[in-house]
Amino acid sequence: MDLITQLLVAALSSGTPLLFATLGGILIERSGIIQLGAEGLMLMGAVAACLTYLHTGSLALTLLAALAVGAALGLIHSALTVTLRANQIVSGLAMTLFGTGLSAYLGKSITGQPIPGAVPKIDLAFLEPVPVVGDLFAHLDLLTWLSFLLVIVLHLFIHRTSWGLHLRAIGDNPPTADVMGIPVQAFRYGCIVVGSMLIGLAGADLLLVYSPTWIEGMTAGRGWIAVALIIFARWNPLRAMFCAYFFGAMDTIGFKIQLIGSAIPSYFLKMIPYVVTILVLMFLGYRNRNKPSGSPEALGLPYIREQRF
């Protein structure tokens, strides 16, 4: 494999968990609710997946468990932020702290138990002769293909369906949406629960595909990167895909440069993903300076019918 293919493979494999989490976050934030609990949700998804896989050995049940845990935490977040109108930032941070602590506690008994080969790879050997991307797509696992599918589905849902239009209306202007007859509260509940399920799945993907052993705190900040990627992608699933892989590639490029034998200190190479992120944000910010940010207008504002805000 040449360098570009290696880089693409690395980008795809470390970008996929980020992609799941970013997609989930986009769905939630499009409905106007801030989502800062990704780190905790991913850890809970990962620990649930690990426990289930070690006890049942069934991939389907494992994924269901991660989705269910995500849904449960999503319900708590929505009850707090939608029904009780609690501060969304505080509730999100609480999700992170709660998930981090609880997952560490639940995972005590299974720490260090390996779970190799849980997710089947889909062998498409006939693709191999295709230059550059052939090797890339020939041996991907099931969850990576699922993430491709999700990007398309979510994009079509948000931008091409009437439900997606409702979603955008709720995120931008809940009173108007309410007047139109859209059930704002129920819609927000649905988005938070489904989005949280996707973030739980991100944790499962990280555990099952990327780093197949439960270790306390194994996300190591990737939930927060996903939160940043939502903004980076300007709440758009297609851009999220690009951003997640871009960040995944930047994550690994530092090591490639070290191995070429450059004299750049490794400390600087470690900054690459963050420096490049800032540069890209500056570039995009400049290019889009006269356009709307893409942020849902009512993001962070709780909605209660007939109340002014």
Binding site: L206, Y210, G217, M218, R222, T252, F255, S266
Partner: peptide, 18 residues
């Protein structure tokens, strides 16, 4: 290769893959 971390499974994995 230097990872500049004691404990970060994903970074360690990236380093190993490189």
């Amino acid at each position: 290769v230097w990872t500049n971390t004691w404990f970060d499974p994903t970074t360690e994995r990236n380093a190993a893959m490189s």
